[in-house]
Design a protein around this nucleic acid. Structure first.
Lengths: 142, 142
DNA sequence: GTTAGTGCAAAATCTTTGCATATTT
DNA sequence: AAATATGCAAAGATTTTGCACTAAC
């Protein structure tokens, strides 16, 4: 069993127990450039701790998604879910057309979409810009 | 068995055989405001033709996705795929940073994402703008 | 008439759950 | 010590496939 970084403070912030398995999964996600499937995460986790089980991976991923720091998305072509950390440096905004309020949305749903665009169009994607407009809660009521 | 609209010309355009089952599925999708799961489409299809099978639904959806006029996406919270027609009025572009070429991308991956934003932020979404930049095939080679 | 599509049932794949044991607080 | 998480194996759900039959071109 390899040593892994302990994410004690991080887990405390989200009021979840700090277990070895959760640290392993968080570590893997944190070191992933691309979104990963549960199976991929499981295989990487086994390199660190041979005894980890797939159900723990699923339970951990579900927990992280509930806590909203992990994003679950679909791999467009296959019937698989992929997971990626909701990194702070990748925010989008909801823009209210009435009061001009900006609401930050933590996560970005485009990673997997970009992968598929790369393949389909042979386009080397550097970045994207996403703006979503509509009416905020307050302005809907007035 | 109800009468359904026949999409002969449409299917001819995409070089696929015009079958009753495919017309039913296309009709259902065309009349759907929201993306639908295979199961939902199956149940609606059974109202029109009691004998239609779930495997035909899956095979038809897979075909339509291959032909690129149907978009497959994930229902973020559940482990399900949803399908929605790639309507012409909803294109995005890949913008080349070197030669300023614009490449139209037919489909839009944001429908399901928007649904989830509506719920999370109680934000009434009217529209969005998505721009993707990078380098086109030609400019990568030079 | 030939080629391709369909329905059914069975298989494959992905995900969740029950329960006894182990770990965390 | 109490509460929660884990591993295993079994179950559940969704999707795919083989094959005989049927429909489309």
């Amino acid at each position: 069993m390899k040593n892994i970084k302990i994410h004690e403070t991080f887990f405390k912030e989200y009021s979840i127990k700090n277990t070895r398995q959760r640290s392993i999964v968080l570590d893997i996600l944190d070191n992933s450039k691309e979104a990963k499937t549960a199976e991929e995460i499981f295989l990487l986790a086994k390199d660190i701790d041979e005894t980890i089980s797939l159900s723990t991976i699923y339970r951990t991923l579900t927990l992280f998604v509930e806590k909203k720091f992990l994003i679950k998305m679909s791999a467009l072509e296959e019937n698989l879910s992929k997971y990626a950390l909701n990194k702070a440096d990748h925010a989008h905004y909801l823009l209210c057309l009435k009061c001009d309020k900006r609401i930050e949305v933590g996560y970005c749903p485009l990673s997997v979409y970009e992968e598929s665009l790369k393949e389909t169009y042979n386009f080397n994607i550097v970045g994207h810009k996403l703006e979503i407009f509509g009416y905020c809660q307050d302005c809907q009521n007035s």
